[in-house]
Design a protein around this nucleic acid. Sequence first.
DNA 1: ATATACTATGTAAGTCCTTTCATAAAAGTA
DNA 2: TACTTTTATGAAAGGACTTACATAGTATAT
Lengths: 334, 334
Amino acid sequence: MTKNLTPTIYDVATAAHVSIATVSRVINNLEKVKPETRAAVLEAIDALGFVPKADARARAIRTQRRIGVITPFFTAPSFVQRLRGVAAALGPTPYELVIYTVTNSKHLNSYLDTLPLTGNLDGLIILSLELTDHYVQRLLDYHLETVLVEYPHDLLCSVEIDNEDGGKQAAGYFYKKGLRRFAFVGDTSTAEYGIHPISLRLNGFRKELTRLGAKLPDCQILIAPYDINKTREQAVQFLQNQELPLAIFAATDLQAISIIQAARQLDLKIPEDLAVIGFDDLDMAEYFNLTTIRQHLDESGQIAVEMLLSRLNNPGRPVQISKLPLEIIERGTA
Amino acid sequence: MTKNLTPTIYDVATAAHVSIATVSRVINNLEKVKPETRAAVLEAIDALGFVPKADARARAIRTQRRIGVITPFFTAPSFVQRLRGVAAALGPTPYELVIYTVTNSKHLNSYLDTLPLTGNLDGLIILSLELTDHYVQRLLDYHLETVLVEYPHDLLCSVEIDNEDGGKQAAGYFYKKGLRRFAFVGDTSTAEYGIHPISLRLNGFRKELTRLGAKLPDCQILIAPYDINKTREQAVQFLQNQELPLAIFAATDLQAISIIQAARQLDLKIPEDLAVIGFDDLDMAEYFNLTTIRQHLDESGQIAVEMLLSRLNNPGRPVQISKLPLEIIERGTA
DNA sequence: ATATACTATGTAAGTCCTTTCATAAAAGTA
DNA sequence: TACTTTTATGAAAGGACTTACATAGTATAT
């Protein structure tokens, strides 16, 4: 006696002892149906709680308010914090948050292929992923309102930061503290196309040092992988050959932390022997008492949402770009 | 040469010289389609301006392909790691991930009121939130398949851990290391109803100590708020009055980290003066070289998804419960 | 070279609903 | 009464998709 959870027109037909065609006619009240038959059908519909499912669903989906977020898989805390900002901003709105995590650019592209078609999204936010012109055009063609975070594009709205300025701030801060020997730690991941934020941070750091009359020779640049332990090992090796005191600017907080661990292992005093500035200001930075360049991760997500919603309400506005300020947070490591 | 005004999947198939099945696969990006084929199909779609009809689609799939996750707002990393497990498991499936973050139980209840009706969900996962019988019954009545993580309920599937055993393991570990003075740090947040995991951890810890002939007097229990800085301050105060060496079991990694910071501030040697065991094994634990009880957070999310999907495929199975093992991860703090 | 294991694709069946067409019953007409 | 017309209905085809199953084609192993 398994009750059908979602009755179809067939169930109604059976219950009312008529054919599905008749049921259909009753529902759409197109043609003449004998009053008694119609009554019987309606009764069956009521009894079964039937609602033309497919259409109902299609309608429901169409009216449902949905914002999609494409994000790199939650490996790095920075993505999570951005996402947190998105969730926070979306919370009080009637929009649903649909998450698409991607692990590589192929994966991203396959989402970009299909989401504008079948995604039923009102808007899209893309976190920390770079789009090719082709896909940007696709989003525009299909009128899927999109906001980019971190990797901007001329034709779409974006929330971005001035990576170069971040490097510059780090350099200036170190210099003002009287430090004169510098190093940089970054990761190996380079953009598949376009410009990588990490290189911009390095550029800004180096440029400002040069301007101040200091220098950053290539041998003082450590390129380490995205793995804490390996980075720490490499950092230990690197640090052993350095004259002290040294000032290191790490491209991310996570790498800064690896450096700190390496320094502890070598019994270097922080910040006396080794000054470290990170980049991001993750939640974790506070735990490590890390001096770092704050890039307002949570806010980036929030602002992206606000921008998107305002565009949905006022379509056709010119492309908007929001540049978030960077801010050096002085803690104990530099 | 009137071009069909509303092209169908058949037109696309013809234009791209493939079958409608392949077109369908491309727009749903389910299975493997050769990149060139996919490109050709997409080109045809673009050229014809094809857009799949939602009602037909709904008719054919007659499932939502949507899994909802209700989670406390991403404040604590443990929720994020659970969510990460969910996302990882859902990634390769055709299911969409819809996130509902809640900040209090009223908020949770309002979701539970509406989601079974209008959520258009195939299944629901509830992370670290406790349900009243009333809402459990509601989920059952509306046949919304649900899996609970962390706070189980007799009538629903769940993924849980043995909190008491975690406390026991910590006690045993300390004792075996020869430690004989103990303390516990937990947070103030108590469950609104039912039993709180933190108290279970404490219970297990205390019971095992008692069994071993040691004790944990109430004055050795520090109840600290969910704030790193305040916890650190309180911990500093607490530690100043302690005889050393001391073994502290922290109910969460975050609190263990606060303890470590306090210890550093007081120049205590870890693990000689102060041994610390945390609970969770967050990503961060490794950075802090924290000895801790691993509760397989990511896995909990993954298993919840697997359980849910298997139930969707085999409805009416008896309620399933998965108990994840706890495991002590030995690092540098104890 | 042959056997084996995948991959990519197509064929065809299935989904749930609408609509066309045929027909039995009822009603109207001569 | 016999003959048309009307009306109510069902059988079945069609619509726009998805998907289980089968197979040709390629890769890999022996």
